[in-house]
Design a protein around this nucleic acid. Sequence first.
DNA 1: TAATCGTGGGT
DNA 2: TACCCAAGATT
Length: 359
Amino acid sequence: MLSDHLQVFDFNKKLKSWYLQNHRPLLWRQTSDPYKIWLSEIILQQTRVAQGTPYYEKFISDYPTVFDLAAADERDVLRLWQGLGYYSRARNMHFTARQIVAEFEGKFPQTAVQLAKLKGLGNYTAAAIASFAFGEAIPAIDGNVYRVMARLFGIFTDTLSNEGKKEFAAVAVQLVSHEDPATYNQAMIEFGALQCVPVAPDCKVCPFNDICYAFKFDMQAKLPVKTKKAAVRNRFFNYFILQKGDQLAMQERKGKDIWKGLYDFLMTESTELVDSPDVFFDDIVMYNILSKGRIREIPKVYQHLLTHQRLNVRFWWVDIPMNSDINLPEGLYFYSPEEIHSLPKPILVDTVLREEDYL
DNA sequence: TAATCGTGGGT
DNA sequence: TACCCAAGATT
C-alpha cells in the first residue's frame, strides 16, 4: 500500500503523465456539460466504448439537451436505445431527465451525494459526474478501478461484496487527487481499460511494475477477486406472429421479466422445446386465436443468450385472413410495418423481422 | 444481499 | 463451444 503522502503524490504524478500520453480522445471527454457526461456514463455502464459510442452520438444528435430528452416519449427513447441492452438504463434516464427539468430547472445537482439520489445513478456514476463536470474530489470506482487497485495493492477482498466495496473505497479516498480529481478519475479508469487489462496485461511496459503486488507475485490472473456468476437457465419461448395483410400483432412487455417496455408478439413459455403446434390448441385462449388463422411451417429454433438465460425461441407465423373478425387479447394490437419500425424491440425480434424481409 | 437486468466481442 | 467480460444499478 502507498503509506504516505509523498508516495501518493508520486503515484498521481506518474498516473497523470501516463494518461496524458496514452488516453483516447473520447467524445464525452471534450466537454464539461453534465448532461453529456451523464449520458455517456449511463451508456457505458457494463458496455464497451466501441459498442456505446454510436449510441452516444445518436442521443446527442436527437436530444442535444436534457430538455429535449425530457420532452421525448419514453417509447422513442427506448427505440434509440434498441440494441444496447439493460433497458432500465434508458427508462431511468428518461425519468431522471424529466425530474431534472421539473424540479431543478434543467440544472444537474453538483455533488455526488445529491446526484446519487437520482434514478439510475449509483455511487460510481454519481462520483464520475461530480468529478468530471464539477471538480469534486471524490473517487469514481468502476470495474477498471477495482482491478487496478486490487492488483497494485494486492487486495483479495471480493469487489462485489459489501466488505469489498468499503475496503476499496477506503483506499481510493486516500489516492484521489485534490488538485485535479477529474483527470485523476479519468486516468484510473483509462489505465484499467488500456494498460491494466483483465486478461494478459503487458506488465513489461507498465509504469507501476516496480510497486505492483500482482506483478511481483504473478497474480494478475487471480485479481481482482469476483464472486462467480449464477448458472444460466434455459427458457423456451414460442412467439406467434399474427399477420393480417401487412400488419403484425405486437404488445408492450410489462412486469419484471426481461425486455420491459419493449415490444414483442403473443407468446407462450414452455418447459421444453415444442416440435408441433398441436399442443397450443390444448389452451382454449390460444385455440380461439390460432383457429382463426393458418400456421406456416414449423420454424427453426433461435438461441439467444443473455447474461443469466439461454432463450430457445421459435417464431410461429400465423396468417390471419383479411376478413377475419379476430379478437386480440388485451394489450395486443396490429401495427403497420412503418409503426413496427418505430417501436422499440428486443434485438432478437428485430433480427427475425429483418430476416423475413419484413423490416 | 444475492439475483437480475442485454448485447456483442474476444479467447 | 462455452465462457468471460464490459465506465453498474436495482430490488
